[in-house]
Amino acid sequence: MIEVYPADSRFHAEHDWLRSNFSFSFGPYYNPDNTRFGPMRVLNDDFIAPQKGFGAHPHSDMEVVSIVLTGKLRHQDNLGNVGVTSWGEIQRMTAGRGIIHTEYSASTDEELNLLQMWFEPEARGLEPSYEITRFDVDALARRWTPVVSTDASDHVAKIHQDMTIYLTDLAIGETRSYETAATRRMFLFVIDGDIQVGDETELHKRDSARITELSKLEVRATSPSRLMLIDLP
């Protein structure tokens, strides 16, 4: 089953320095039928003005993944970590038993656009941790490139959940297929471009699809596209 969530169906919040689009219930937006997709709890598509951001606040028992699309994201936390993330890098934070951090746009003139995702971990009370990993941007044009996974490596951030986040780029007319167990979930998000999924489903920029009971996915780009695919339980 493929459930399509158009970009404009997301909850939109606007402040003087922040525009947010919530794919799931978050803060002021509460829809009891839209609180999760398996362990996935949050996907916020945030646009943050230069030098602005979120002051000190806590997290616990969540795996927080940030993918910066434009601009720079600066993180600082009570563990002593300070990091700046930009496109080509992944920021992963295991909140576990608790972490306090700030998140700011480190750009002086460019808007920060980031995708921030929260996933429930496989266990509660984990040791808090933070990392930045760098993936091979050129590989995106060749394959679904894992950038976050339970099977971590030098270029793949570690997540404490049985899941993998992939990114890929498609040229117009190019197709990419993906196979997984039919018992798994797939979350597909169009970062940029337009695609066709299977024979009938069209997705456009910032649309998403929640896919269940399907073992093979085939996507075809109808314009140059950048996609995120999450394979999760």
Binding site: Q51, A56, D77, N78, I100, T102
Partner: peptide, 14 residues
């Protein structure tokens, strides 16, 4: 609660 962390509103600012 099993753990606490004290902080100040201006902590960890750039």
């Amino acid at each position: 609660a099993s753990r606490q962390i004290a902080y100040h509103p201006g902590d960890f600012e750039p």
